[in-house]
Simulated assay, not measured.
Amino acid sequence: MTSNSTAGAQPRVAVITGGSRGIGRESARLLAADGCAVVVCSRNQDEADTVAKEITTAGGTALALRADVSDEASVAALFDAAESTYGGVDVVVHAAAHAGLGRTSPVAELDLAVLDVLYRTNIRGTFMVAQQAARRVRDGGAIITFSTAVVRLAMPGYAAYSASKSAIEALTLILARELGSRDVTVNAVAPGPTATELFLEGKDDATLAGLAARAPTNRLGTPTEIAEVVAFLARPAGHWVNGQVIQVNGGVL
């Protein structure tokens, strides 16, 4: 657990699930650079500590917490800790890795046990984080969820995964309307193929080249490129963007 308090005006507070790797890690670093006090949440305490230390070494403010976003009590405890440490929450980025991208199957052959895992992790997990965010985020804040470009691409074999992500999109758009009177924005970011550790794992060069070729620029996105959009949505400059699913995919077709 690492924290670095600053004197004077209290900073905005950002809670980032999945903040120790990939897009979440880059989002944490960018929001800290913007002056937010960042709560880095991960299932791996050591990895969260590493990111928090990087932020504080650079002069930012960060707190590392272990939390399981599939567990209701753990999610509530995460927000409790953020509030008790920094006095409130202004931004929530739910970047925790979601299940199912590698579990492809035609609808006719899908093992329903896989569907149950997708439901619990992607839909129920996101709903729990969104529920706590809706209760805790201060007026004028921002909530950012994650979908995927796969939903729009309608790729065969990805029905269960895409359905779970479509549910996240629906939740996001409805929550934006429910929280509008409090000036809280709610948006989803939908990345295309992005070179995170999790995405690259288990894929050979030919597979990665094929995925890269789907973009006009013939390359994969980077975690930082996705995180820049997250940071924009969290900033005051991005506050008029609300109730949107933003495709960040390099023009993937």
Score class of each variant (00 low, 15 high):
residue 109 E to G: 08
residue 110 L to N: 11
residue 136 R to H: 06
residue 150 V to Q: 09
residue 146 F to A: 02
residue 128 M to I: 02
residue 136 R to P: 03
residue 133 A to E: 10
residue 113 A to I: 05
residue 110 L to D: 09
residue 145 T to F: 07
residue 151 V to S: 09
residue 146 F to Q: 05
residue 116 D to N: 12
residue 125 G to K: 13
residue 115 L to T: 03
residue 137 V to E: 14
residue 135 R to E: 11
residue 128 M to C: 00
residue 148 T to K: 00
residue 115 L to D: 09
residue 120 R to L: 10
residue 107 V to K: 12
residue 132 Q to R: 15
residue 135 R to Q: 11
residue 117 V to A: 13
residue 137 V to A: 13
residue 149 A to C: 03
residue 150 V to P: 02
residue 143 I to L: 08
residue 149 A to M: 04
residue 130 A to S: 10
residue 140 G to F: 12
residue 109 E to W: 14
residue 125 G to Y: 10
residue 105 S to Y: 04
residue 123 I to N: 08
residue 145 T to K: 12
residue 118 L to H: 12
residue 149 A to Q: 08
residue 125 G to V: 01
residue 146 F to E: 02
residue 111 D to W: 15
residue 107 V to H: 09
residue 117 V to W: 04
residue 129 V to W: 01
residue 121 T to C: 01
residue 137 V to K: 15
residue 139 D to C: 03
residue 150 V to I: 04
residue 137 V to W: 04
residue 137 V to M: 14
residue 141 G to V: 02
residue 126 T to S: 05
residue 111 D to E: 14
residue 143 I to W: 08
residue 148 T to L: 00
residue 112 L to Q: 15
residue 119 Y to M: 03
residue 147 S to V: 01
residue 114 V to S: 11
residue 139 D to S: 10
residue 119 Y to T: 00
residue 149 A to S: 14
residue 130 A to C: 06
residue 134 A to H: 07
residue 124 R to W: 00
residue 113 A to V: 07
residue 114 V to T: 11
residue 105 S to A: 10
residue 140 G to E: 12
residue 128 M to V: 02
residue 131 Q to H: 15
residue 132 Q to I: 08
residue 110 L to G: 07
residue 133 A to P: 14
residue 152 R to V: 01
residue 128 M to R: 13
residue 107 V to S: 09
residue 149 A to R: 13
residue 119 Y to V: 03
residue 144 I to E: 07
residue 106 P to Y: 10
residue 107 V to M: 13
residue 145 T to P: 08
residue 121 T to A: 03
residue 129 V to G: 00
residue 113 A to T: 14
residue 128 M to S: 04
residue 105 S to C: 02
residue 131 Q to W: 14
residue 152 R to W: 04
residue 125 G to D: 03
residue 120 R to A: 15
residue 130 A to G: 05
residue 117 V to Q: 12
residue 123 I to M: 09
residue 148 T to E: 00
residue 112 L to A: 12
residue 110 L to I: 10
residue 114 V to W: 07
residue 131 Q to M: 12
residue 131 Q to P: 04
residue 116 D to A: 13
residue 115 L to F: 06
residue 152 R to K: 10
residue 143 I to F: 07
residue 150 V to K: 08
residue 105 S to L: 04
residue 150 V to R: 13
residue 117 V to D: 12
residue 137 V to H: 13
residue 147 S to Q: 03
residue 115 L to I: 06
residue 107 V to L: 13
residue 129 V to C: 01
residue 148 T to Q: 00
residue 146 F to D: 04
residue 109 E to P: 10
residue 143 I to P: 08
residue 110 L to S: 11
residue 115 L to G: 11
residue 148 T to C: 01
residue 132 Q to H: 15
residue 145 T to L: 14
residue 107 V to C: 01
residue 143 I to H: 09
residue 109 E to D: 15
residue 110 L to C: 10
residue 105 S to R: 12
residue 121 T to F: 02
residue 116 D to I: 07
residue 120 R to I: 06
residue 138 R to Q: 05
residue 111 D to M: 11
residue 142 A to N: 04
residue 105 S to I: 03
residue 136 R to D: 07
residue 122 N to Q: 00
residue 122 N to W: 01
residue 120 R to E: 15
residue 136 R to M: 00
residue 113 A to E: 13
residue 116 D to P: 04
residue 133 A to G: 11
residue 125 G to H: 09
